[in-house]
């Protein structure tokens, strides 16, 4: 792994320990996960114990300690979507991809996460793939959406 990017991000925050979360967020968006080497580098450069970096990386949901698939599926489990049948959408996606929330399939095609609310309640139930929102879903429509991904 090239530590150059990680170093750049740390330098941008002037190596301040209070920016730890902000730094990890940027590394996460760069690689879509937090490689161990990056965490070690952060620990070293910020003079923060590795155990604390790890604690932060596991405490917050935005961080992943394992690599993600090519397409990230976020299924909204917000209350509005729940009462409009989000569980059935989740069932369908699990069925089609064979993975549970938090998992990535063996081909690294999809990663699946549930999220608390995407704030598109008028379109519920919704899911988001690679940042694109798909709304007013039914299990049948969900299957069509997933089919279009390679």
């Amino acid at each position: 792994m090239d530590t150059g990017k990680t170093d750049q991000i740390i330098d941008k925050h002037e190596g301040q320990a209070s920016s730890l979360i902000q730094i990890l967020l940027e590394i996460q968006s760069e690689y879509h996960w937090l490689p161990k080497e990056a965490l070690e580098r952060v620990s070293e450069k910020l003079h923060v114990p590795f155990s604390r970096v790890r604690h932060i990386a596991t405490f917050y949901k935005a961080f992943s300690l394992v690599p993600k698939g090519r397409h990230e599926i976020h299924i909204c489990m917000g209350t509005a979507c729940h009462v409009r049948g989000a569980t059935r959408i989740l069932d369908k996606v699990q069925d089609l991809t064979g993975i549970q929330p938090g998992e990535t399939d063996l081909d690294f095609k999809f990663s699946l996460e549930t999220v608390n609310c995407l704030g598109c309640c008028a379109m519920g139930p919704v899911l988001e793939i690679d940042g694109q929102t798909h709304g007013k879903l039914s299990p049948a429509k969900t299957a069509d959406v997933l089919k279009s991904f390679e």
């Binding site: 209070s18 920016s19 730890l20 979360i21 990890l24 604390r52 932060i56 917050y60 949901k61 935005a62």
Partner: peptide, 25 residues
């Protein structure tokens, strides 16, 4: 500006302040 990192409890004020300090919320 401080970006949250996805933890519901961080909306609670004392947890939020911990998080601003760069710690677990």
């Amino acid at each position: 500006v401080h970006r949250g990192a996805g933890a519901f409890v961080c909306g609670e004020e004392t947890a939020l302040l911990k998080s601003l300090e760069g710690e677990a919320g």
